[in-house]
Design a protein around this nucleic acid. Structure first.
Lengths: 243, 243
DNA sequence: CACTTCTGTTACAGCGTGTTACGTTGACAT
DNA sequence: ATGTCAACGTAACACGCTGTAACAGAAGTG
């Protein structure tokens, strides 16, 4: 990971040097600029990881500059300004700024916010949507995590419905912990429609029953998917996770 | 672009419903949660685009939860808290939070910050696709984004209709994300005629069925082009993109 | 024009899932 | 023990969602 290169844009020389020094003392490369022309020169010249852009720049306006840059570039931009009213902040976010820091600011907090935005940019771009698929094993069963079925200890393939799969995932994510029905319902709720959650009735019990009938040797006397009377359900098997 | 799915984590029911309602009124899917267990259940169960995480959660602590999640997941996290001192904010950023919003907050400003973080995440992660996408590979298949056909794992050339190609592109551009029929229709609708979208009936289902019959080994049990009952369709194959 | 190919509509069957009803079990008080 | 009551299991049912065959235009091609 190379040293981050930041652009510090402010028309006040004092402020500019304060910020560049602060950044340099904290292992950043800080390049000063004071106009849109200079910003564009830097952008076309070399890599810029983030721009700290003052809103009031004499005759120019940081908000407008930000809007224009956004139309062409993905470079992270943090607006800095003495204008700290909510509507002014929102104007900044509206034109695509990643953050809006009010002056005067706590130097350490500013560094933290700069790091946060850069980390988000880096994290997302490096591993784009890598899906986390883990394989679970419990009591001879093998659950792939990305298919709606599982392998029985005897080698048969047992098909699960999507909802059964979802339930199994929730249970596997919380091994040996009793889960209340409400918790399971909210976890399975795809829509976020809270009204629905209350009307669910005994749906979870049915779901559990159906899953039991598929994976328990003796569904009448469940060993893995146990009932915690008055509480909910608990997945009580030794689970090993791979990858 | 599919509807963002947010997790709202707060132990105060009033606060939680205020936030979920606010988000829902602004075209987000807001899923309520109140414990780390519920968060993990949701994360293992479905896509979550961003977590709004309260810092003080009864016996649990949002900072610690955030730190733990960060070690495993890339999901964007915004901390929300009544603790607004600088050192408390910095503690949040230190554990990898993307933003830190102090309570009480201006609802519109909160929305703006949520959008900012999500846009940053999306912008970066979609970089791969923004570049003139050339060639996609998935499960042995090769799709040359500019032709209306694709190469099967066995080397045969399978012809696709225009509309099938368009559907495939939409799916490839949104890997592992369930797309509603409306979303697919609007994405396929080049004219922008919104009336048409409603009159589409089951066209998407037919289209999906026909594409399945061409690219799924066993169209009766689709592995790549899966159905999310009550939601829509999702492309669930590992995709690699070249150039 | 005939012919082919693509695409949307309709109808129907099958399946997944929630609800209801009823029987069983377990906890607790008497 | 025995009764009581709430919690739980599950069979039966109802309903909505989805897959798909069959058909009908639409659009291209010669």
């Amino acid at each position: 990971m190379s040293i981050p290169r930041l652009l510090v844009v402010d028309d006040d020389p004092e402020m500019r040097s304060m910020m560049t020094q602060l950044l340099r003392q904290n292992s950043f490369i800080a390049l000063p600029a004071s106009s849109e022309r200079e910003i564009r020169a830097h952008l076309s010249n070399g890599r810029i990881d983030l721009i700290l852009l003052d809103v009031m720049l004499g005759d120019e306006n940081g908000i407008d500059i930000c809007a224009r840059l956004r139309r062409e570039q993905d470079v992270p931009i943090i607006l800095v300004s003495a204008l700290s009213a909510d509507h002014q902040r929102m104007a900044g976010y509206e034109v695509g700024a990643d953050d809006y820091i009010a002056k005067p600011f706590n130097p350490q907090l500013m560094l933290a916010r700069v790091r946060a935005v850069m980390q988000r940019a880096r994290r997302s771009s490096s591993l784009a949507y890598r899906r986390r698929t883990r394989t679970f094993r419990f009591d001879g069963w093998v659950f792939d995590g990305k298919r709606d079925d599982l392998h029985s200890p005897e080698g048969y393939l047992v098909a699960l419905s999507q909802r059964e799969t979802a339930l199994l995932k929730v249970l596997l994510a919380n091994p040996h912990i009793p889960l209340t029905r409400d918790e399971i319902v909210t976890a399975l709720d795809v829509t976020g429609d809270s009204d629905k959650s209350e009307a669910q009735g005994r749906a979870i019990d049915m779901l559990v029953g159906r899953l039991r009938s598929k994976i328990e040797t003796n569904p009448k006397d469940p060993q893995m998917l146990r009932t915690e009377r008055g509480v909910g359900y608990i997945f009580a098997a030794d689970i090993s996770v791979e990858e």
